[in-house]
Design a protein around this nucleic acid. Structure first.
Lengths: 339, 339
DNA sequence: ATGAAAGCGCTAACAT
DNA sequence: ATGTTAGCGCTTTCAT
């Protein structure tokens, strides 16, 4: 059995309070005692129990995070910066990988509650009623990262998805494209489904381009679905000269499909992605993408959550809107100038 | 303040023991009491504290996992199945993403200890003395996944890296290649550094092929390093007709480098990767890879760890060797038949 | 079948 | 400056 604080106290010939004091670096402990305690700790190989501490301090320094899919390049990157920032601030991560599994998410949310985590980060917005009910009555600070669910109560760290999609589409238009296909997200998702689609539509409209219904499809953000949606789009003649996919993974799937059809990116078809994941640099041609500031997003998410945790009362509770940025690589062609 | 078991007891007009009993699904509670308690729980929105439970039960149902880099396609995949299996068994994951940061790892290992996690999974083998000392004196069950560190005390879930590398090299040889380059891992790593290199060397020797020193480089498993090492290899004339990279990420980096030099895979140069991550299907040409059974590996890791946890005494403590498998895709050419 | 009380390992008043 | 003691929220003997 692991030694406890009492054992250390006995070994050092002091009270448990004194041991606790040196453990927590408090003053009011004479140097010689401090040394004796430290020696006892070393001799016994004592490690304080975080469990017991949490119980009395009512603070676990745990953050629960719900990721849709750690396997995605976007989420794994944001998760890694979340972990880094949390760790730097003395917090540890309890992670739940839901894969469209609502039951699992609900179960985890309950676990988070039982674990008395200090805060929760959620990275998706497909909240069903049960989950919405639960998080609404939990008293644990919650923050959403990269998404803004319909429910207005919680704060989100996001980009302006509408504007970003608008700008991505506009980029294609400025390159001279007029037949611009779209591979969107789940339209039940406000942030990455509806808002991005609205931006795309608006950009087209603002430039007098009719909506190319035949070239519009909706996927699930993953490579495979980008591939399949592109396949459907290519079946429509004439096919578009450019495609905007709302995730890099789908964009890569689309590029692969185009390649497998014997066509070339960007010569025959330009494609632009969304997110700015590392995949953009791993494929050839390198993928032009409307990037989210992923690293910053992860960091700010944790920073804001810690504010919520530490300031007790919700405070201003305002969304944080980060800047999106177009990063031009090799997957888009300037139709006018033949770039 | 969240309601406690005492509040529920009062509300239901029973003792805390009774509440505890219905909470834990014990028998010896009359139905009417059970119902009253349940109603009190609902009315109060009571959630038992896992913290308090852990303290008395001396069991946290927490597993600490140390991943080198969640951003890598291999590790994120194995992490996702680890999480899945753990969750299915009622365990939660505390994750630490070390990025070659030994201090952070040490710190986390200590945190795991303080948290009294029930078990630990480590996915790298670059143990320094300090870390080795620590894990050797911790009494928490530890298991290594995908690596086998020098230290013999712990069990590992791995493939036979030597044989896998041998087979990958042999595959290239059977395709008619004679100038086979190698982009290896860190030679301080036994499993993925030394063993794979030994397999490569031996396959060459067994087929009477001299070691092509000029075409051998060592990277850090990441895409970027695969790119750079390939660049160095291409600078040597004549360049090899095939390259074996010991991670899919590096293989993709190599493919990109080849592409950027105006050469084609597999026409000019074949490349074979290692791991079987999803990247293999995301790039064009699709990457042939010596695959590890990633999903199985993650599952078996957790299963074995749970055995260690539940059976108290280490037991047989034998490594688990999983089967590797060559998956042929489009990045390797049959030189003899011109395939 | 139900309850009283001790205790899990620690911190934090409150003495002294 | 150091020690005593009362909890933190729960489970678990041990009575009844």
């Amino acid at each position: 059995m692991a030694p406890k604080i009492k054992d250390v106290a006995k070994q050092a010939g002091v009270s448990v309070t004194t041991v606790s004091r040196v453990l927590n670096g408090e003053k009011y402990v004479k140097d010689d005692l401090k040394i004796r305690v430290q020696r006892a700790i070393d001799e016994l190989g004592y490690t304080p129990s975080h469990i017991a501490r949490s119980l009395v301090r009512k603070k676990t320094n745990l953050i629960g995070v719900i990721v849709p899919d750690v396997t995605s390049s976007f989420y794994s990157t944001i998760l890694s910066t979340i972990e880094k920032t949390a760790s730097l601030n003395g917090y540890n991560l309890l992670v739940c990988n839901i894969i469209e599994d609502t039951d699992k998410e609900l179960k985890y949310l309950q676990v988070f509650q039982q674990m008395r985590v200090d805060g929760i980060i959620i990275m998706h917005e497909k909240l069903n009623d049960e989950i919405r009910d639960l998080i609404n009555k939990m008293s644990i600070p919650i923050i959403f990262s990269s998404v803004k669910p319909a429910d207005q109560k919680f704060i989100s760290v996001i980009i302006d998805d509408y504007a970003a999609a608008y700008d991505a589409t506009k980029h294609l238009i400025e390159l001279g494209h007029e037949r611009i296909g779209y591979i969107g997200g789940d339209m039940r998702d406000i942030t990455s489904g509806q808002n991005r689609y609205a931006g795309y539509i608006r950009a087209l409209a603002d430039h007098g381009i009719a909506l190319p219904e035949a070239h519009i499809r909706f996927g699930d953000y993953k490579t495979q679905s980008g591939y399949e949606m592109m396949k459907e789009i290519l079946a429509q003649k004439p096919h578009p000269t450019a495609v905007f996919a709302v995730s890099d993974d789908m964009a890569v799937g689309a590029m692969n499909c185009i390649h497998d059809h014997g066509l070339k990116v960007p010569e025959h078809l330009s494609v632009i992605g969304f997110d700015g994941s590392q995949l953009t640099e791993q494929v050839r041609p390198r993928l032009t993408s409307m990037e989210q500031p992923i690293l910053e997003m992860g960091k700010v998410t944790v920073d804001k959550l810690l504010e919520l945790i530490e300031e007790k009362e919700g405070g201003p509770a305002e969304d944080v809107i980060l800047q999106h940025m177009l990063v031009s690589r090799d997957s888009c062609m300037d139709v006018k100038r033949g770039e």
